[in-house]
Design a protein around this nucleic acid. Structure first.
Length: 856
RNA sequence: GGGGAUAUGGCGAAAUUGGUAGACGCGUACGCUUCAGGAGCGUAUGGGGCAACCCUUGAGAGUUCGAAUCUCUCUAUCCCCACCA
């Protein structure tokens, strides 16, 4: 007999399935009850030139098995696919080869699609989307406009990575290690006006929303840490300057910003702390190099030149350099000025140091060296005073190292003797502090100085800017966004999409703007408000934008009136199962949740969270146990494996490798096990059901077999529900052995077994199902077999016989056999004679259907 | 520095969630079959011992009739965040 011909089966069924359109979800599903529907989603790929990776295959096989399983159980399953095709690689390729990114993307998409179809994935291709399609990014731009109108988009000076040799802005990934990824030149920092999205406005909702989600704990924790909510207080330290008359805070801009010109208050520094309880031990202040106090008190700072030098140096430091200094902190004292500790009333020195971050809290801290490691290090280095205010027993301190634990307050005036945590609130009030919650999360930098992205649909109009800035003008016709960003006017929604213009060169312009800035007739336009001359925004959106909402568009991909019909959205959202790599634990999954929450608040959609259940597949490593990479030469290519062993074999092997979420090394030999298994299935059906080779048989199926079959069916059903595919496959293998040992193989069980195999190995299953067993419709349109619970138990049960806790034998019993009866049989068995000799039974531990443990 | 995860044969891994440790697969050995090929089938396969038995789930302790599983103390590896006040 010839082994199964995978290649021609793949060809045949691929075509047939397409013709029968069996992967398309019924349109009536979109008006049906949510409980009848399932939404199984993959993280859509970036269509790179390399094609599909075995890691993609892992995730996509999981979602395909689950989709097929649910379909066979009678659900309407939405299982779509699309392309996240904006972004750097295509642009870089375009620069190098002078080919339009659109052409490159088209080619890569075609290749990916070919590969996905070869694997038999049951995607509904009629809902395919592409983030670079103007009909799609029209709505990405539309969402941006809603965010803008609501005041959630604003412009801000941000420092960016700049490569002086390539003359271009670099992303953080391109600037890793402080050098340009392309030319290894040292990366510089440059200040640039960028669009920001106010994701911080959603910080609370994004943390609180996590509770309701069935996500891996580690991803939830990562998001929580990333958002970084912490309870603390703002406390003011007033500044005493020796040259008080030189103050001119208002002229140079006050750091509180809104004081009137005449009313001069003395300068102060506001700090943020989570530990107001330690304030009596605050022996100095540290401000970030960017802190306004430095320029405000310029003339009071005696060593201003030295300070200025330090500030300049810090600004040019890469993140890498800053991190390498964690152990050895740098800083300069602001000589000539002192701050007053509001708790003790004593003068403390003020320092500038770049270990204080400008964007967190107030950009200034009170340093309590006795109880904070960083402050301790800094104080030791610069010989600053250290005062212990928490003691483990209220009396003594160990003064040769930092004490970070809780305890009893000392040297803290009227708070002495209290537990430090319990005194936080009272001490905050005592020093006039304001309780506040701070987040680590920073607003989302949304501009990219690139060509290959969604154009930002705004124009700048000088005339409108003047109107908004003129206080006498009535500005109530303007949106929040327009008032927040004077001069920036959104283009009309009816003019969307704002298409990317063709450009001659994708080469960076060398200035800080995108290649779009060079297209004069595109940049120059008219203002949608006043009709006057205006200029378009030339930056584009980041790659994350398109992936923030693509899962919504699959539900209603052709709607050109609305982003999505809420009625349709209701019948499929939230996503039942979302599968992808952990690498998106924070960025993509947080940005998507942010946009989703916003759309929810705007009542465009009905559910506040997009992904009810998230699963991360584990990384597939090379045969050497290392991460697969070209340079290591340990990359397994799906195309090669499909050619040699077949798509079913690849799918099943990847599922058999180990638990879904664990990292797993590739083993080329291991594939053979699956190949053998599938061929044995093929031979079994040839033997029994091929009209030329099959022999007639007449026996009835034994009831013992029925029980074994039902047991396997139950296990496989439950394993698929719990995404435990490795053990499901092992159960299929055991079952196959059972089937091979049968003389008579009834058609009923032959059918059931193939249906059970079909989600894993759709091609061979379809061949057997339709060509050998002569069924008309696909396995996918057939019902998943139901197990008979009564028959899913073994007829006899093995019970372990233990003496003094050690297993000495195993015996078969009927399920539910009583303790006394088992004991009688064990005693009568001469195998165990020796154990009873000369011993008196003290106790018998019995677990029904499991063990009997006889103790002497 | 903080957070999270993992650790079981030569290898990938199972273990009904406290009840026969090593299912299933790979590899290996021996045998069978064939016009010999990296094919197919069968048997064996954690370690030690002739044996009855003993040892064995990263190391060490504890709880229990019974621990891979629970508790404590270590060790190693991996991932994420990283001067967040």
């Amino acid at each position: 007999m010839k082994p199964f011909d995978f290649i021609s089966a793949q060809k045949k069924w691929k075509k047939q399935w397409e013709k029968e359109k069996i992967f398309e979800v019924k349109s009536s599903s979109f008006s049906s009850n949510r409980s009848k529907n399932k939404y199984v989603l993959d993280m859509f790929p970036y269509p790179s030139g390399e094609g599909l990776h075995v890691g993609h295959v892992e995730g996509y096989t999981v979602s395909d098995i689950v989709s097929r399983f649910y379909r066979m159980r009678g659900f309407n399953v939405l299982h779509p696919m699309g392309w996240d095709a904006f972004g750097l690689p295509a642009e870089n390729y375009a620069i190098k080869n002078k080919i339009h990114p659109e052409i490159v993307v088209k080619k890569n998409v075609a290749n990916f699609k070919r590969q996905l179809k070869n694997l038999g994935f049951s995607y509904d291709w009629s809902r395919e989307i592409n983030t670079t399609d103007p009909n799609y990014y029209k709505w990405t731009q539309w969402i941006f406009l809603q965010l803008f109108k609501d005041g959630l988009a604003y412009e801000k000076e941000v420092s960016v990575n700049w490569c002086p040799s390539c003359k271009t802005v670099l992303s953080d990934e391109e600037a890793e290690g402080g050098v340009c990824a392309r030319c290894s030149t040292k990366v510089e920092r440059k200040e640039l006006k960028q669009w920001m999205l106010k994701i911080t406005a959603y910080a609370d909702k994004l943390i609180d929303g996590l509770d309701s989600l069935n996500w891996p704990q580690r991803v939830k924790t990562m998001q929580k840490n990333w958002i970084g909510r912490s309870q603390g207080a703002r406390i003011q330290f007033s500044i005493a300057s020796q040259i008080d008359t030189d103050f001119n805070a208002d002229k140079s801009g006050n750091n509180r910003g809104n004081q009137s010109a005449n009313q001069r208050e003395s300068e102060f520094v506001e700090v943020f702390t989570t530990r107001p309880d330690t304030i009596f031990g605050a022996t100095y202040l540290v401000v970030a190099p960017e802190h306004k106090i430095i320029s405000n008190l310029k003339s009071s700072i005696e060593n201003f030149n030295e300070v200025k030098k330090y500030v300049e140096k810090s600004k040019n430091k890469s993140d890498q350099e800053r991190i390498s200094e964690v152990k050895d902190k740098t800083g300069v004292e602001l000589k000539g000025i002192k701050a007053i500790n509001p708790a003790t009333g004593k003068e403390v020195s003020v320092w500038v140091a770049d270990y204080v971050l400008p964007y967190y809290g107030t950009g200034a801290i009170m340093a309590v060296p006795a109880h904070d490691q960083r402050d301790w290090d800094f104080a030791k280095k610069f010989n600053l005073p250290i005062i212990f205010v928490i003691s483990y027993d209220g009396k003594n301190v160990i003064d040769n190292k930092v004490y970070e634990e809780d305890g009893i307050l000392i040297s803290s005036g009227k708070f002495n003797g209290q537990k430090n945590r319990e005194a936080i609130s009272a001490i905050t009030d005592f020093v006039g502090g304001k309780k506040e919650i701070q987040f680590k999360l920073r607003d989302w930098i949304f501009s990219r100085q690139r060509y290959w992205g969604e154009p930002i649909p705004l124009v700048f109009c000088q005339h409108c800017a003047g109107k908004i800035n003129n206080k006498n003008e009535k500005i109530k016709n303007f949106s929040k966004g327009e008032i927040l960003n004077p001069g920036w006017i959104p283009i009309k929604e009816s003019d969307l999409p704002l298409k990317l213009p063709k450009v001659k060169s994708y080469q960076p312009t060398g200035s800080l703007s995108s290649p779009l800035a060079g297209i004069k007739n595109w940049v120059n336009t008219t203002c949608p408000r006043c009709g006057g001359p205006a200029k378009r925004e030339t930056n584009t959106m980041p790659q994350w934008a398109g992936s923030c909402w693509y899962y919504l568009r699959y539900i209603d991909p052709k709607n050109n009136k609305k982003i999505i019909d809420i009625k349709k959205e209701k019948s499929f959202m939230p996503v039942d199962l979302y599968i992808g790599g952990v690498e998106h634990a924070v960025l993509h999954l947080l940005y998507a949740r942010f946009w989703h929450r916003f759309l929810f608040d705007k009542k465009i959609i009905k559910d506040p969270e997009p992904f009810a259940r998230l699963v991360n597949q584990g990384l597939i490593l090379g045969t050497d146990g290392e991460k697969m990479s070209k340079s290591r030469g340990n990359v397994a290519n799906p195309d090669d494996i499909i050619k040699e062993f077949g798509a079913d074999t690849l799918r099943m092997y990847e599922m058999f490798m180990g638990p879904l979420e664990d990292p797993k090394p590739w083993n080329t030999k291991g594939i053979l096990g699956i190949l053998r298994f599938l061929n044995r299935v093929w031979f079994l059906y040839q033997k029994h059901f091929n009209s030329k080779t099959a022999k007639p048989h007449s026996q009835k199926t034994e009831s013992d077999f029925e029980n074994k079959f039902n047991q396997s069916l139950k296990k496989i059903t439950e394993d698929i529900e719990n995404l435990r595919f490795n053990t499901a496959i092992s159960a299929l293998m055991i079952l196959l052995k059972e089937l091979e040992s049968l003389d008579y193989f009834s058609k009923e069980y032959a059918q059931k077994f193939i249906l059970m195999l079909s989600p894993f190995a759709p091609f061979i299953s379809e061949s057997i199902w339709r060509d050998v067993l002569k069924n008309k419709k696909s396995t996918l349109l057939s019902k998943w077999p139901e197990y008979n619970l009564k028959k899913s138990f073994a007829q006899t049960i093995k019970i372990a016989i233990q003496f003094n806790g050690k297993t000495r034998g195993v015996m078969d019993f009927l399920p539910g056999t009583q303790k006394e009866e088992i004991l009688k049989i064990v005693k009568a068995d001469n195998k165990f004679e020796n154990y009873f000799k000369g011993n008196e039974i003290k106790r018998v531990v019995f677990v029904p259907d499991r063990i009997i443990n006889i103790l002497f």
